[in-house]
Every structure is written in structure tokens, then in C-alpha cells.
Design a protein around this nucleic acid. Structure first.
Length: 201
DNA sequence: AAGGCACACCGTTTGGCTAC
DNA sequence: GTAGCCAAACGGTGTGCCTT
């Protein structure tokens, strides 16, 4: 659990449910209640901290320095909601039997760091969590970075997990740009989040 | 008409408890 | 150890009232 928290940094209680389920060798989440019990116990012994931000999905949770060796994440920033959304996606992948790791830092100019890498038995997917649409030229440069990476062959596909509006922007960019067309058959776009960053059923 | 404020209501989360 | 039920707590939203 703490290995996973070290990777995602911060998550919500719903994600804790899925990862606890995965640790029980189940593809289903444990109950919300037992996830809360786990959090309460870990908080009591100083291994996690949590704060109720009033978001769907429950309190936000992170490992303390004692547990992960990492500094407290900054949770009152714009990117925090994105981090929690990435963790939510990661938790589902873990429950589905995938391993999860952070993408490596871009080693050269013009490359792009994905939000995560899902390692399955038969495939390796680069995961992008997209809550807000980017400007079109940004997609063009990201797509050409992905085209290079996919050509190298160590990853099989790119998965965009989006809000409704972000999915529209990604699909439009895929069809508008030539580089988008080049990689379109290796890119999957899924609507997975609502506008508040909550996970759709 | 617009803005500020208090209040009630609603949905969600949390923790206590019990049963299995 | 877990699921299910319940009550309390909390944040968000809508409404009514008052002032500007």
C-alpha cells in the first residue's frame, strides 16, 4: 500500500478501497467503511495523513514522511485535483491486475512525460489523465513525442482518461493533426471523470 | 436590480455499533 | 475481519429577507 502511495503521492478514500481490494487479490474494492477503518488506523499510528476537502470520493490521503520518506504533498494547488484523479485511475488499473509506475522524466527536449505507465501481462500503456482541455498546438507536440515513443516499441498504446470536454479536445486534435492521424489507432480516449474530477460510474 | 447575510435542506462522508 | 445500519458532521446549494 505504501509503495503505491509513494508512487501516486496523494489519493482519495475511494482509491484506497480499490488498492486494498487488489492487495486481497480481488478485482473488487473493499467497502468504503473498511477503507475508512484502515485510514483511521494508519492515521492513528502516524503513517498517513488525511484531510476532508469535501470532494466526491472522500478525504484526500497521503503517506507521512515516516511511511514514505516523502514530504507532505501540496494539496491546495491546481495540480492536486489532477494528482488525485491520476491516483484514481491507477487504483483501478492495480485492481485490474496491472502494475503501475511513474513515467520517466523526459530525457530530451520535445519529449513528454505521461501521468503514469500501466504494465499489463500483454501490454504496456501510457496513461494520460486529462481534466481540462489543452490548446491544440500543445496536443500536436505531445502527439509527436508519443509517435517517437511508440515507434521505439517499448510501449503499446496511449490511453487518455478524460472529462467530457477534454475528450472532445483530444479527439479533435487526433483528427485535425497529421501526427494525430499517424498515432490514432494506438490511442484510446475514454470519458472517465466528471467536471469536478470525480470518477464516473 | 444587485449584493450580503442567515437559515434550512440535501447529499455525502465518517465513526460507533452490532451481527455474522 | 468485514458488512450493514444508524446518527452526527460537513460542504454545497437554494431561499427569503434586508440593505444599498
Amino acid at each position: 500500500m505504501f509503495e503505491w502511495l509513494r508512487i501516486v503521492r496523494v489519493c482519495d478514500v475511494q482509491s484506497i478501497r480499490w488498492v486494498l481490494g487488489a492487495l486481497n487479490s480481488s478485482s473488487r474494492p473493499v467497502s468504503t467503511r473498511s477503507a475508512q477503518v484502515w485510514c483511521a488506523r494508519m492515521e492513528q499510528v502516524g503513517l498517513i495523513e488525511r484531510v476532508n476537502v469535501g470532494a466526491p470520493g472522500g478525504s484526500w490521503v497521503w503517506g507521512t514522511y515516516e511511511a514514505t520518506g516523502q514530504a507532505r504533498p501540496r494539496i491546495y494547488t491546481q495540480t492536486a485535483r489532477h494528482e488525485v484523479a491520476v491516483a484514481a485511475a491507477s487504483a483501478r488499473y492495480i485492481a485490474a491486475g496491472f502494475a503501475w509506475k511513474r513515467d520517466e522524466k523526459p530525457s530530451r527536449v520535445g519529449s513528454h512525460q505521461a501521468d503514469g505507465v500501466a504494465l499489463g501481462l500483454r501490454s504496456v500503456d501510457l496513461i494520460e489523465v486529462e481534466l481540462t482541455p489543452k490548446r491544440a498546438p500543445r496536443y500536436a507536440s505531445i502527439f509527436s513525442a508519443y509517435r517517437r515513443r511508440l515507434a521505439l516499441g517499448s510501449e503499446d498504446s496511449v490511453v487518455y482518461l478524460c472529462t467530457e470536454s477534454a475528450a472532445r479536445a483530444v479527439r479533435r486534435a487526433l483528427s485535425d493533426f497529421r501526427v494525430g492521424d499517424d498515432i490514432a489507432d494506438r490511442v484510446r480516449v475514454r470519458v472517465m471523470f466528471d467536471d469536478r474530477g470525480g470518477l464516473l460510474a
